[in-house]
Design a protein around this nucleic acid. Sequence first.
RNA 1: GGGCGUGUGGCUGAGCAGCAAAGGCAACAGACUGUAAAUCUGUCGGGGUUUCCCCUUCGUAGGUGCAAGUCCUACCGCGCCCA
Length: 395
Amino acid sequence: MTNSDQQKIEELLTRGVEEVIVKEDLKKQLESRKKIRLYLGIDPTGFDLHLGHVVPLWKLKEFCDLGHEVILLIGDFTAKIGDPTGKDATRVPLTDKQIAANMADYKRQASKILDFEKVKIVHNAKWLSKLKFEDILKLSGQFTVQQMIIRDMFQRRLEKDLPINMQEFMYPLMQGYDSVAMDVDLEIGGNDQMFNMLIGRTLQKAYNNKDKNVMTTKLLLGLDGRKMSKTYDNFVGICEEPNNMFGKIMSMKDELIDQYFELATRLSKIEIDSIKNLSTNPRDIKARLAFEIVKLYNGEVAAKKAEEEFNKVFTNKELPTNIEEFKTNKINYPILDLLCDTKLAPSKNEAKRLVEGGAVTIGENKISDWKQEIKLENDMVIKVGKRKFIKIKIL
RNA sequence: GGGCGUGUGGCUGAGCAGCAAAGGCAACAGACUGUAAAUCUGUCGGGGUUUCCCCUUCGUAGGUGCAAGUCCUACCGCGCCCA
């Protein structure tokens, strides 16, 4: 075993990794050069992948590059049934068609990271749909109610007198059974999956008398320091337009810079340190970070362009290179209507507020009277706030 | 099956019979600058002939009353306790 092999294993076990159960065991397996089988489970619900989702995918890639057998498991079974997890609406069951479409979309996005020539895709309906009631009894017999409600999610709901649906007890079992059916050595997942993954570890021991190790990846926080999620609108999608990607990363909290370098770039420790030595101004380091991330998903040329565009619009306060156009044949336009029709404002009340707040600029002039009627000219640029621009085209 | 409680704007959470509905979070805008950060300030259901008028909202459907998120009845969802 060479030095660089040792290093790769060390990196595999630590970078972006929150916890490994059992670390020594996994390390031994890796050092013995045994080819291990590992998997990551995903929900085929259809969503845009963001930098947080992708942390475990990069980990899969590392394993894949070292020649291990990597499986991407589609949880189509649960998706077909509908999942009551969470508070309000029961998740609507998906059809086979939807699942297929969602997966195609997932694959399109994930192929920015994974090579699907090497990664195997498997669906868990293949075995879960075949289980009989007696199989399920045997499965559930492996655990006590006390063991199940230990889960933090259940604890929280019990404290708050919130409902816990019976089905929700079954999900960890189903997910755990996946490990048995695939007979895997390792499962990778986010930290929120720890409980389910450990259920799988127990089942794998009981059914196949084998130790399945569990690796959780670190959680990448959203731009504002909260959990990265669509509802908070604090995420960076991996298929986002480069300018947007760059801008979003620039807007994140300074404290998150280190975390993003570790989890969202592929730079080595040495490279990261040298970047951090370049400047004492977090702004510059953040710009490098943004550049690296955009480059990772869109290539170097696009990253350069995005950086230039950002400096142009925000540092130098110039107009962006490409501005969306609004075509009309009206010449005289009341400002409120204009803002609504161009979608710069969602309602007239909102438009009025924007004008009163001094957010609206046409050409060089700030608009302060919301009753004003605008005489449109070709190529006139309307700006709302710092980031929204529309160019007028008269037909 | 019985008893008690609960259901409010994107979320959270106040609410006395006279509220477009406190506070917090988020969002949006302004100032500032290092940037779409931080901080401070303002706004935050919709429409209008805009210091005022109209419409729609507090689980659903009715009722009392000049007036109902607030009281009554029924129903629905959820939780707790008893069986």
